[in-house]
Structures are given as C-alpha cells and as structure tokens.
Nucleic acid binder design. Structure first.
Length: 307
DNA sequence: GACCCGTGGCG
DNA sequence: TCGCCAAGGGT
C-alpha cells in the first residue's frame, strides 16, 4: 500500500491543477463555497463564479447580511440553485452560532445546510488538515477499478466503499489530506468515467480492472430525463427571475398570451424561452408552485421574485 | 433505496 | 444528434 500512496501522491505533485481553492491562503469559507459549487458542476464553470463570490462575500457574515435572493442571482447558471439557498443559510448559521468562523470538525460541519457526508469530510480535510475519508464520485470510481476490478462504482455509496476508503487512508493527518486530493484528481484527470487514460496512470500496473481485461460495467446507469420535464421549466422560470430587477407579474407565467414584450431585454428573452418550452399552463403552474415551496421564489406585491 | 433537483460541454 | 456526465444533498 505504501507503493500505491507514493505513486499517486507523486503523480499529484507533478500534475495537479492549479485551482484557487487549493491555494494555502484560501480561507475555510472559500473552500466550503468551492465544494458546494462543485457538487455536480464541472470545475471550469465554477471558477469565474467562485471568484465573484469570494470578492463580494469574503466572509460568511458578508453573505448572511444580504437577502438569499442575492446568493441565488449570483449563482448564475451553475445549476441546482437550491445549493445557493443552502449556502446562504449555512452562512447565517456560521455567523450566528459559530462567531463567523467555520466549524472545524466533520460532525459540526454536517450540521450546516447543504453539507452532507462528502462535503463535511472534504472541508475537514482540505480546510483544516484533518484526517477524514473523502468519498466522492471520482474516488469511488478509482477505488472500484483499482481495487474492485470493476468499471464503475455501485449506483449508490455502499458500506463496503466507506470501509475501503477508510482502510486506504494514511494514518498521518497531512499524508491523508494529500491522498484524498491526489485520488480525487486522478479520477478527474486520468481515471475518468468514459475514456480513461490508462497510459498516463501512475498505478496502471496495480489496477485490478486492467488486470481483469477491463470488463464492461455490470449495470447500465439510468440517464436522467431532461427534455420536456418540469425541471427544465423550473430552470427557465429561474432564468426569468434572475434576469428581472423587479417582481414579475404572475400573469406573465401563465402563458404566451400575455405581452412578453411588456418586458424588454433579457427578461423578455427569458420569458419567450420559457413559453416556448412549457407544455402548457398546468406545467408552468406546477413549476412555479415547486419553486415557491422550495423558497427559490417568493410572492411580492408586484408578482414573483427571488427571495 | 428511490426519486427529485439545473446546466452545458463533449464523445 | 443526443445521451452521458460533473468534487451531492435532501426527502
């Protein structure tokens, strides 16, 4: 196992991407923001938005002092805007209950909105240097191939995977942090889901999946439907609200019979997109109701708006 | 465990 | 072109 660690960490030292949240000067808050933004969103799309957030809200209290809608608007098109809402809620908890400083243990981090098992471990490790088993999709895939001999990890995280991650984790704090980051990076750059670059892999010689002749996945991942779904319409409604600087009358969401032209510029464009997309008034109503229930939209005197 | 939640780039 | 995929979390 020593050889495995040395090979992967050595590779990481040479090939790691120079990401701003890996700067030793990056604050724990900056690392938390990056981790939440990176949930299901590629690095290249996160970078510019993360920089804006750090400049605008360098401390949790700065974000907590603003309406949640500002976080949602600044989230832009990263997707899953409820993450912005939860990050804002987390900032409020940190400001109110932790004197504005991030808690530094996995257990306490887990108490923050939007922070689950992965993010709590990642922040404990990368922001505070603690020994924590980080298990994300990259690490799961590397473990599945390298140790399990399978093309892909199980559909959902299993107890066996948690146990394996703990067993592979070096005892030393600093070494464990490097190991977590290195395996994650290996999965992101080399041991990728679709076409792994085994020729560039530092541990190809030890890979159980290669040794087994690279067998195909034992199951077929079910793709998530998108075209024509309520999710797509919710996204289009959110685009309208982000573009609007004042409440948008509810009637404008009911259908294209209303004067889209009443809103000029980007709001009008997003309204037209929404109306072209929605299957009918019932789907629009369903989408709006869902957003209201989730707190991503609120009723204002003039209509619908960000919270 | 099943299901829901956005978005855009790439093979 | 179109399905797959990306540093998950909550219910």
């Amino acid at each position: 196992m020593r050889d495995l660690h040395r090979a992967v960490v050595g590779w990481f030292a040479d090939e790691a991407r120079d990401l701003p949240w890996r700067d030793p000067a990056c604050s724990p808050w900056g690392i938390l923001v990056s981790e939440v933004m990176l949930q299901q969103t590629p690095v290249v799309r996160v970078l510019p938005v993360w920089r804006e957030w750090m400049e605008r809200w360098p401390h949790p209290a700065d974000l907590a002092a603003e309406p949640a809608g500002e976080a949602v608007r600044a989230w832009g098109r990263l997707g899953y805007p409820r993450r912005a809402l939860r990050l804002h809620a987390a900032a409020a908890v940190i400001a109110r209950e932790h004197d504005g400083e991030l808690p530094d243990t996995e257990e306490s981090l887990l108490g923050l909105p939007g922070v689950g098992g992965y993010t709590a471990a990642a922040v404990a490790a990368f922001a505070f240097g603690r020994r924590a088993a980080v298990v994300d999709t990259n690490i799961r895939r590397v473990h599945a191939r390298l140790v399990g001999g399978e093309a892909l990890p199980a559909p959902s995280l299993t107890a066996d995977e948690r146990r394996l991650a703990g067993e592979l984790l070096p005892d030393d704090d600093a070494a464990s942090v490097r190991w977590n980051a290195a395996v994650m990076e290996l999965g992101a750059l080399v041991c990728t889901a679709r076409s792994p670059r085994c020729d560039a892999c530092p541990v190809a010689g030890a890979c159980a999946w290669r040794a087994a002749g690279e067998p195909p996945p034992s199951y077929v991942p079910k793709g998530q439907a998108w075209h024509g779904t309520d999710r797509q319409v919710r996204g289009a409604v959110m685009a309208v609200l982000r573009a609007a600087s004042r409440p948008v009358p509810r009637g404008f969401f009911d259908g294209p019979t209303n004067a889209d032209a009443a809103h000029s510029g980007s709001v009008g464009i997003e309204l037209a997109r929404l109306h072209a997309l929605a299957a009918g008034p019932e789907q629009l109503e369903r989408a709006v109701a869902g957003l209201l229930a989730d707190g991503l939209a609120v009723e204002r005197p003039g209509g619908l708006a960000l919270p």
